[in-house]
């Protein structure tokens, strides 16, 4: 059994409950214990950093301080949470003035942080802490007819070098292959989906989403798997808007990689939250997946 502190992030209560439920189910199947951090708060994301950087760091530092008490690696499922928490850690270690200010602010809430928590992304955990043989041994369903485009997005691999290449990452490719599915080339795999600017600059962001969908289709992908809630929402919930705006006809299901893992492990549809996916994967899974 491997133990981790788990930081779900706001998206899991809002747009992507299926990421949360599938991640927990897959973890259980792999003897990984994801212990949710008690009383965690929002990471503040990029917007808070822009408005008040110190407050944004303190927002994250509270979560880091809570995780430090428990002592395990802190695992985030959302790439933005992962980046913002890691960034707080880095600034805490590199800038003594920032460290002093964060320490003072945390004290106002009766907390202290010493900078010892290691922040991880859940892709890193499933792709690197679990061996591919172990993954293969859990696979019960044949995915060999399924062509998958592995989509990383930006913030899981950048800016700081961590567990994968900055521009041409491979961990999700390897993991998808271990599940028995076919991985198609996906040159835009680490390009940005536009994130929350879909609300303020939708014209521009719809164009970015279109490129990502086009690239997957051009490489004959049956579906896209992703590791970030923002990517999933943009590619899934706004796929219809892209079709209307550009007169295209995309119908590409966008699953979380943990949902695909769950399908391979034979976990039931409801637990994996496949009914939450807006572009339904049912037809493709019915025709291409043999139980």
């Amino acid at each position: 059994m491997k133990y981790y502190s788990y930081f779900p992030g706001c998206c899991m209560h809002e747009e992507t409950p299926m990421y949360d439920s599938s991640a927990r189910a897959v973890a259980k199947a792999l003897d990984v214990e994801l212990i949710e951090l008690d009383d965690w708060n929002c990471c503040g994301s990029t917007p808070y950093t822009v408005v008040d950087e110190l407050a944004a760091f303190c927002c994250c530092a509270r979560n880091l301080a809570l995780a430090e008490k428990r002592g395990f690696d802190l695992v985030a499922a959302c790439s933005d949470c992962y980046l913002i928490l890691s960034r707080t850690n880095q600034h805490f270690q590199h800038y003594p003035e920032i460290r002093a200010k964060i320490t003072e602010a945390l004290a106002a809430g009766g907390l202290e942080y010493h900078g010892t928590v290691r922040v991880r992304h859940i892709l890193d955990v499933f792709a690197n802490d679990i061996s591919s043989d172990e993954i293969k041994s859990r696979v019960k369903v044949d995915l060999s007819n399924l062509k998958v485009a592995p989509y990383y997005g930006c913030q899981v691999v950048r800016p700081a070098p961590s567990f994968d290449d900055l521009e041409n990452p491979q961990s999700l490719d390897r993991l998808t292959e271990s599940l028995g599915a076919k991985v198609v080339p996906y040159p835009l795999k680490a390009r940005c989906c536009g994130g929350s600017l879909i609300l303020s600059e939708d014209e521009i962001v719809l164009g970015l989403i279109r490129k990502l969908l086009e690239n997957a289709q051009a490489n004959s992908a049956d579906l896209i798997v992703t590791v970030c809630p923002f990517c999933q929402v943009n590619l899934d919930a706004y796929q219809g808007a892209v079709n209307r705006r550009f007169k295209t006809n995309f119908h590409i299901p966008v699953l979380f990689f943990t949902q695909l893992m769950g399908i391979a492990f034979g976990i039931d549809r409801k637990t994996l939250g496949l009914h939450h996916n807006i572009v339904s994967a049912d037809k493709i899974l019915k025709t291409l997946v043999k139980v």
Binding site: C10, D39, I102, E104, A105, A237
Partner: peptide
């Protein structure tokens, strides 16, 4: 995927977070 009821932090942790953020803001940024 869009709950009508807002998910909030419980009162006690919220009080703690607010104390931390108020302190941070009082310091006037970095």
């Amino acid at each position: 995927r869009m709950p009508i009821k807002a998910h909030k932090l419980e009162p006690e942790p919220m009080k703690q977070l607010k104390a931390i953020l108020d302190k941070a803001e009082a310091m006037g940024g970095l």
